[in-house]
């Protein structure tokens, strides 16, 4: 089971991992990835727009695909939307499994697909009011295609 959540507010990685592991003694590996707003070129803020009617369903579909490929993996994915400041967390992927290989692989898959198959768009904003939409990267498409 891999759960998906979409929210504007922050998340607590330690609490997410603790919730996943609670009451389990069969898990030997827990992996966690947090994506953060990086202040490239003096960036002041990053706004994440999304497609309200589709985003959560798409995140759930990505989670379901990971659960199908790695049946022994437990996990959760959380993606934020709205205006975020440098240093703030954007996305959290938490996985756990009996052995580390599956937990690492599922976490990487979840991030690669979140980047390329979930309807979010990032808009960068600088202190002087300049804004710019982030361009999709071919390297992200290539990373996602590895799992095809």
């Amino acid at each position: 089971m891999i759960a998906a959540r979409l929210q504007s507010g922050p998340f607590d990685p330690a609490a997410e991992q603790a919730a996943l592991l609670a009451g389990r003694t069969d898990l030997g590996a827990a992996v966690q990835f947090t994506g953060l707003v990086r202040a490239d070129d003096g960036l002041a803020a990053l706004t994440l727009e999304h497609y309200p009617g589709m985003t959560l369903a798409q995140m759930q579909a990505i989670a379901a695909e990971a659960a199908k490929r790695w049946p022994g993996v437990l996990g959760s994915i959380i993606h934020r939307h709205g205006r975020l400041l440098p240093g703030e967390p954007i996305v959290l992927v938490t996985t756990a499994s009996p052995h580390r290989g599956d937990a690492f692989a599922a976490a990487q898959f979840l991030m690669d697909w979140l980047k390329t198959k979930a309807p979010f768009w990032k808009k960068e904003e600088w202190a002087n009011g300049t804004t710019r939409w982030v361009e999709a990267k071919a390297s992200d498409d290539a990373a996602a295609d590895r799992w095809a």
Binding site: M111, K115, T116, K122, A136
Partner: peptide, 12 residues
């Protein structure tokens, strides 16, 4: 019923 048009996605 609903058709959405947008740039390539850039989340994550």
């Amino acid at each position: 019923r609903e058709i959405a048009i947008f740039p390539p996605v850039t989340g994550g």
